[in-house]
């Protein structure tokens, strides 16, 4: 680990010399270097492993562990863990292990969808604002300031109190409120990138705006976007959890981890620990995992922070 990062420092110190001679080689090897540095980060590997394992658990698990997660079974409520129900049953008779998988599918789908949509829209918005500049930029940025001034949860509660929450509604609402930070980040990067020599060179050589944006600006902000996306996944899963607690989550029989935790905490005093701890542990694990991955990506992609 030490040697890998050490190499990175030396390599980056020499970058400008390479840059004037051959543009493509250092960029390509920098990418390879980033992958190596990422793999050398043990916490990042742990995070990635957890994510992959949990995704497999949620999406492949139900093929092995068949449970009824649609109809309640009131003769089998709040049974403690046994051989028949490895993690017991909840207050409606659902098998908790099976529900963790089904609920995980919903939580992960919301997380991944928001993690895709929010940075995507944010990037387009940010690049347009940063590249155009002037009055349009000011207008677009003031709009972001306005939406950011109202806490996200306030908006979501308001919209959630009007629309009946479904998977798609939740994804759209959370995405609509999550693109602001990537938009700001991408705009800031675009502002500095569009003045760089290689972008100006492309313009001088006759490349139009679309070309500059597609070939030079967006690829160079990709690191920032990736980092942001991994945090967005985690935050979206948490927001859904909070909404479930406030009674604005997915209605039954649908489940999410957050909803299971919210249901579990109402029985916290009754000793039904198997209703609270399994979803809470898996929720915390996954969110920590996404944050570890995001943090590692940021460390890898920010050469200033390479440890010396």
């Amino acid at each position: 680990m030490k040697s890998a990062t050490g190499d990175a420092g030396e390599f980056l110190a020499e970058l400008p010399d390479f840059g004037t001679i051959e543009v493509t080689t250092p960029v390509a090897s920098l990418r390879g270097l980033s992958v190596r540095a990422f793999l050398a980060n043990r916490l990042a590997i742990a995070g990635l492993t957890i994510v992959v394992a949990v995704v497999a658990f949620c999406f492949i698990g139900p093929l092995v562990h068949h449970t009824n997660q649609i109809t309640t079974n009131l003769t089998q409520v709040t049974l403690p863990p046994s051989l028949h129900h490895l993690l017991g049953t909840d207050d409606e008779g659902y098998d908790v292990l099976g529900r963790l998988m089904v609920g995980g599918q919903n939580s992960l789908e919301i997380g991944f969808a928001v993690g895709l949509l929010a940075p995507l829209f944010g990037t387009i918005y940010g690049v347009v604002a940063g590249y155009t500049g002037g009055a349009l930029d000011s207008l677009l940025m003031r709009l972001i300031d306005v939406v950011l001034a109202v806490p996200t949860l306030f908006f979501i509660i308001f919209i959630g109190s009007v629309f009946r929450p479904t998977l798609v509604v939740l994804i759209l609402v959370i995405s609509c409120l999550s693109w602001l930070s990537p938009a700001r980040l991408v705009r800031a990067e675009t502002l500095s990138l569009r003045r760089r020599e290689f972008v100006q060179a492309a313009t001088v050589m006759g490349g139009n705006t679309t070309h500059s944006i597609r070939r030079h600006l967006v690829p160079n902000t990709f690191g920032t976007i990736m980092v942001n996306a991994s945090f967005q996944v985690a935050d979206a899963i948490l927001v859904v959890a909070t909404l479930s607690f406030l009674g604005l989550g997915l209605p039954p029989p649908a489940a999410t981890w957050g909803g299971m935790v919210a249901q579990g905490v109402t029985y916290a005093a009754d000793g039904y620990w198997w209703m609270l701890w399994p979803p809470l542990v898996i929720l915390v694990l996954v969110i920590v995992a996404f944050n570890l991955v995001g943090d590692a990506l940021r460390d890898v992609l920010d050469p200033r922070l390479v440890s010396r």
Partner: peptide, 26 residues
């Protein structure tokens, strides 16, 4: 510390509150 703090960050706010309630009040 990173993992510990991430753990707190990752726990839904209501769950932190309820667990404290459970421990100190109940």
């Amino acid at each position: 510390l990173t993992v510990l703090l991430f753990g707190f960050y990752a726990t839904p706010s209501f769950a932190v509150g309820v667990l404290l309630l459970e421990l100190f009040a109940d």
